[in-house]
């Protein structure tokens, strides 16, 4: 698990340069509270304390990566309680949670602090010092994410604010745009994902099916006409990459069979596009993954591994 942590860390360092030291603080708060809640819940429930396995650190990092970097510090703390205690330990601890803890925390925070969670985005620093934002009131600097702009104002506003196609691709790919830490640098996420794939920690099935479904469906339905959407932009904007490589792939909450994984990934992609295009939120991958999570055990049940050979006379 520490490998995954290591893969996630570069993203944090880059985000410090893009958004300022604020991101580091919020991540630290999130990770620390996750560790604390993990220890506390394991103590309270009389279980062995296993913070060293790194799973709480991953959850902490992911919570910080999916919330706006400008939120009050209380939010990641409450998110940690939801993710670690309610989402994981009450259900039996590591390996028994049904939903991805970090995303559960995000959904919870989004419902509980709708304003902070939808408006505390920071614009890239563009040459300012990374400390320059400390202590400044947030609403003076907050801005909107590309997907939110797209949802409320349309593609023209996105181009105006973030640049024209194709320059916008490179801007997004490098992460120079407002967004959660984990949404920023597509480049680093892809690199980390490919590394994990090479090390065989993850397989290609889920990321590829998620991204393919998102790209394909956005291409078909996402534009003013059919087959007029911009698939590349859909993948680069929002948390699609982080979700596909690091969240949908969460071992505990994804199916194990390969066919099941492909269906699961496609489902996530389809729901993401559905929520993005028709839903009430600008970004849908968080909820798409949460919605597919409970299906993973069902899918595994339906697509059981093929037995070597059934016993003669059939299975009883």
């Amino acid at each position: 698990m520490w490998t995954v942590v290591a893969c996630l860390l570069p993203l944090l360092f880059v985000s410090v340069f893009i958004f300022g030291i604020q991101t580091l603080i919020i991540t630290a708060v999130s990770v620390a509270s996750c560790l604390l809640v993990e220890v506390a819940s394991q103590k309270a429930l009389g279980r062995k304390v296993t913070v060293a396995d790194g799973s709480a650190v991953i959850t902490g990092l992911l919570i910080a990566y999916v919330i706006p970097p400008g939120v009050p510090y209380l939010l990641p703390v409450l998110g940690a309680v939801m993710a670690i205690y309610i989402g994981k330990h009450l259900l039996g601890g590591l390996g028994y949670n049904i939903f991805n803890p970090a995303l559960l925390a995000r959904a919870f925070l989004l419902a509980t602090f709708p304003v902070a969670m939808t408006s505390s985005w920071l614009p890239p620093l563009r040459g300012m010092s990374i400390f320059s934002r400390l202590g400044r009131p947030l609403d003076a600097i907050s801005t909107a994410t590309p997907l939110a702009v797209l949802k409320t104002q349309g593609m023209a506003a996105v181009s105006q604010q973030f640049g024209e196609v194709p320059k916008i691709y490179s801007t997004f790919f490098l992460g120079l745009r407002p967004g959660a830490i984990g949404e920023t640098s597509g480049l680093l996420i892809v690199l980390a994902g490919l590394y994990l794939m090479c090390r065989k920690y993850i397989t290609w099935h889920i990321p590829v099916s998620v991204l393919t479904a998102i790209a394909l469906l956005t291409w078909i339905f996402g534009g003013p006409d059919y087959f007029g959407g911009d698939p590349l932009l859909a993948i680069l904007s929002g948390g699609a990459l982080l979700g596909a490589f690091f969240m949908a792939n969460d071992y505990v909450t994804c199916p194990t069979g390969k066919i099941a994984q492909l269906i699961y990934g496609t489902g996530i992609g389809a729901l993401t596009v559905l929520i993005r295009l028709k839903g009430g939120y600008p970004e849908g991958i968080c909820y798409a993954i949460l919605l597919m999570n409970p299906l993973s055990s069902v899918l595994d049940d339906w697509f059981k591994p093929r037995r070597f050979a059934p016993p003669l006379g059939g299975v009883k």
Partner: peptide
């Protein structure tokens, strides 16, 4: 440590269990 349902054992099992 507890099972995290990574499914590697299912991949590895030559008997499809």
């Amino acid at each position: 440590s507890p099972c995290i349902r990574c499914g590697w054992c299912i991949e590895a099992c030559p008997m499809g269990l």
